[in-house]
Amino acid sequence: MDYNLMRKFADSWGLLAMALFFIGCIAFALRPGSRRQADEAARIPLKDD
């Protein structure tokens, strides 16, 4: 593949894909009910003490 073709793809669709992935991660973290799961995951390292 040509470098310029890959660069144009990254400038257009690559940026869009990364932005959608970022928005999806934020939505996943802020979804209803995620606080309880995050609190449980935060306590995992302390269970064996």
Rank of each mutant, 00 (worst) to 15 (best):
L15Y: 10
C25L: 15
Y3L: 06
P45D: 00
D11T: 02
F22Y: 10
Q37T: 08
L5Y: 14
D11Y: 08
F28N: 06
N4S: 04
D48G: 04
F21I: 14
L5K: 13
G24P: 03
S34L: 07
L30Y: 08
F22D: 11
A29Y: 11
I44W: 00
S34H: 03
A42M: 02
L46T: 08
D48P: 00
F22W: 13
G24C: 07
A38I: 05
C25V: 12
D48R: 02
R31H: 08
P45E: 00
N4C: 06
A41S: 04
Q37E: 13
S34Q: 11
A41M: 06
F22M: 15
K8Y: 07
A29E: 06
L5E: 15
W13N: 06
P32R: 01
D48Q: 04
R31I: 05
F21S: 14
I26W: 10
R31P: 03
G14C: 03
L15K: 13
A41N: 02
L16K: 14
Y3D: 09
R36N: 11
A19T: 15
S34C: 07
K8V: 04
F9G: 01
A29F: 14
F22S: 14
R35L: 13
R36G: 08
R7I: 03
A41R: 02
I23L: 15
A17T: 10
G14Y: 03
F9T: 02
A42I: 01
D11K: 13
D39V: 04
D2L: 05
R43G: 00
F28R: 05
I26V: 14
G33D: 00
N4H: 05
A29W: 08
Q37R: 09
R31K: 10
F28G: 08
L46K: 09
R31M: 09
D48N: 05
M1C: 09
G24E: 03
L16D: 13
I26A: 11
D49Y: 11
C25Y: 09
L46P: 03
P32D: 03
D2V: 04
S12E: 10
P45A: 00
I26K: 06
D2H: 05
A19G: 08
D49A: 09
E40R: 01
Q37S: 09
D49Q: 08
N4L: 07
A29S: 09
P45R: 00
D11W: 03
R35K: 15
F9M: 07
A38W: 02
S12A: 12
N4T: 04
C25F: 14
A10N: 14
D48Y: 03
D2E: 11
K8H: 05
M6P: 02
R35N: 08
A27S: 15
R35V: 14
R7Y: 06
L15V: 10
F21D: 11
L15Q: 12
S34R: 07
G33E: 00
A27K: 15
L20E: 14
I26E: 07
R35M: 09
K8S: 14
A17V: 07
Q37I: 06
A41G: 02
A27F: 15
C25K: 12
G24V: 04
I23M: 15
Q37W: 12
S34P: 04
M18C: 14
L5F: 14
A10R: 11
Q37V: 06
A19D: 08
R31W: 13
N4K: 11
F28I: 09
D39N: 09
F28T: 07
P32M: 01
L46H: 11
F21H: 12
D11G: 08
L20D: 08
A42K: 01
F9L: 05
R43T: 01
W13M: 10
W13P: 01
